[in-house]
């Protein structure tokens, strides 16, 4: 983390379960990340993306029955890196979004850090995208 600090990144958090989203928020804030959201639904998240620019996103795959893929599609189009969080395992996600990482719930802070490590630096700081 030292060679690519997360500090200053704007990361969208999409998670429909309040207690989990609060935990993720705290994890990110502890790393100096500016949390955008959290959003609990696709509509909420898309509305936020209309308003704000983000450097990356943590997306819960399943949002109370709906899939977060429409959000992922918009993010992919924008070239924003995605980390999916899911209770289902990786099925289906990896094939659809080959550049995205997936975190299985529950995850450790270290897992979150390493998943976010591939994000480019804060907008305009010139981090090279992977892929």
């Amino acid at each position: 983390m030292t060679d690519r600090p997360l500090s200053g990144l704007r990361i969208l958090v999409v998670e429909d379960e309040a207690m989990i989203s609060m935990m993720i928020e705290d994890m990110l804030i502890d790393h100096g990340v500016t949390v955008v959201g959290p959003a609990g639904s696709v509509a909420q998240a898309l509305a936020m993306l209309d308003e704000e620019e983000v450097d990356g996103a943590l997306l819960d795959v399943n949002l109370g029955g709906e899939k977060s893929f429409p959000i992922a599609d918009v993010l992919t189009e924008k070239g924003v890196r995605i980390v999916f969080t899911t209770g289902y395992g990786e099925s289906g996600v990896g094939a659809r979004y080959p550049n995205a990482r997936t975190l299985q719930k529950p995850f450790r802070t270290a897992d979150l850090e390493s998943a976010l490590a591939h994000f480019p630096g804060p907008r305009g700081s010139g981090g090279a995208p992977e892929g």
């Binding site: 379960e17 207690m19 989990i20 899911t86 209770g87 289902y88 299985q104 529950p106």
Partner: peptide
């Protein structure tokens, strides 16, 4: 089974969240 797995994992994550937040 997939749904159960999903629930269990989410519950574990919830418990994890409660534990972390309580400790803070």
């Amino acid at each position: 089974v997939a749904e159960l797995n999903h629930r269990v994992r989410n519950n574990l994550a919830t418990v994890q969240a409660i534990a972390r937040q309580t400790r803070r």
